[in-house]
Amino acid sequence: MGIEERDPVSGRKTTGHEWNGIKELDTPVPRGVLIFLIVTHVFAVICWFLLPAWPLGSTFTKGILETDQREIVEEKLVRAAAERASWMERIESATLKEIQADEQLMSIVNSTGHQLFGDNCAACHGVDGKGRANYPDLTDEDWLWGGSLDAIANTMRVGINTDHPEAQFAIMPSFGRDGILDRDQVRSAAAYVYSLSNPDYSTADNIDRIATGRNVYLSSCASCHGEDARGSQRVGAPNLTDQYWIYGGDLQTIVTSVHGGRQGHMPTWDERLTEAEIKILTLYVNSLQVEDP
């Protein structure tokens, strides 16, 4: 041990130490490593001169460029807003109908609306706005609180069943669970409602139950959904005669809805989105509607 040897492969000497067979060569640090070391250090020192870098008690070296990430972000936001100002101001000042008539603005609405809808609405209503179980489809002609531009904008602003001062409330009581109707009445009412969108269901076997259900319906449901069961956009009661269902239109789901009641929730957006963004989204949602369903 402790004897320097010459390595036959590299021609270098070993350091003379040996640990359980392991030896080390006494190769000097390659020049490339030293140059690389200098280059990275020069880079670091230049950065320290240019940028905020070293602490000095309660302050720090500001750097020759005197940059600060806060100021950079603020400048970028101002610049971004300025770039959008040309069309943003027009959207802010125009009415929904005016924007809709302006082809150029509508192309901006469509491209900007895609991202706004994706980041704010799609989690519930789906990327394509077609909804999914328990969340309404926005592409059909069936609307809870109205499908006019103003009605869509208003729903977006105040939400559904929220604590917004102008909130829209639509709460269907739990008729079965709260004992308003007995079990049989719940089933009959559901059978009647089911028959409205499924005429085939009105067979001789079911006709009595449907007739009973109609009476239950008229006394307990019609005040919101209307005598003709076509619903009311004034109180957010859905049309029960069509093929559009939020929670499902099969008999068992209708029984569940009548038994347990329903109350959907849509958040308010007036504090999270700007007035212009709500306008863009309103027009975007409106444009999702299928022309010929």
């Binding site: 690389f36 990275t40 250090h41 670091a44 905020p52 720090f60 750097g63 600060d68």
Partner: peptide, 25 residues
Amino acid sequence: LPHWVQTLGMTFSVMLLVPSWASAG
């Protein structure tokens, strides 16, 4: 995190490359 701390983190990370590559090499 203050900008100056970020600059330090960045520059030391770059200098760190040399001993790291020296080990791999």
